[in-house]
């Protein structure tokens, strides 16, 4: 005697368990990968930043407007600082986004906190990039000999 058993839960899968195009795609996986890749690059960039600014020469006593102008006269340090700005801000923003998602339980609170975070991030990245690209060694108050 044979009994036919219907396929379990056929056509009745709760939509929240369905995977596919409706999900948020691979954003979270890419964010996870970005944290590892940018982390490694940031170690090189920030260690180089700390060594050149605080460890060699006069260290922090030698930092002044002239010191910054000297560094940004070189395209290498301009690129170094620009890369450091973008990677550190995106790495930090994604970290804080994760923390907000973990601890802010109300949907409205999460949305507000992340909104404030993203506005601050865009402001700091745009401001920092403009400062590097439009740097003027002869800005107001400059005591440099070429001015």
């Amino acid at each position: 005697m044979s009994v036919s058993i219907p396929a379990p839960r056929s056509q009745r899968i709760d939509p929240k368990y369905k995977r596919g195009p409706k999900s948020r795609g691979s954003f979270e996986m890419l964010a996870w990968l970005f944290m590892r890749l940018s982390g490694v690059v940031l170690i090189v960039l920030i260690f180089g930043h700390l060594i050149s600014n605080l460890m060699v020469g006069e260290g922090i006593s030698g930092i002044s407007f002239g010191f910054v102008a000297g560094k940004w006269a070189s395209p290498l340090w301009q690129f170094w600082d620009l890369a450091m700005l973008w990677l550190a801000m995106l790495h930090g923003t994604n970290g804080v986004r994760t923390i907000i998602n973990d601890y802010a339980e109300k949907h409205a609170t999460r949305a507000w906190l992340k909104g404030i975070l993203y506005v601050a991030t865009i402001f700091i990245i745009v401001l920092g990039s403009l400062v590097i690209f439009t740097f003027d060694p002869c800005v107001a108050g400059s005591q440099l000999p070429q001015c």
Partner: peptide, 28 residues
Amino acid sequence: RVTGVVIFLYLLVHVLDTAMVRVDAGAY
């Protein structure tokens, strides 16, 4: 987590203080 948040908050301040090089050398 704790060190990450501390570093991020300092980073925001550090970009703002460095931005003073675009305003006035003496102020920086």
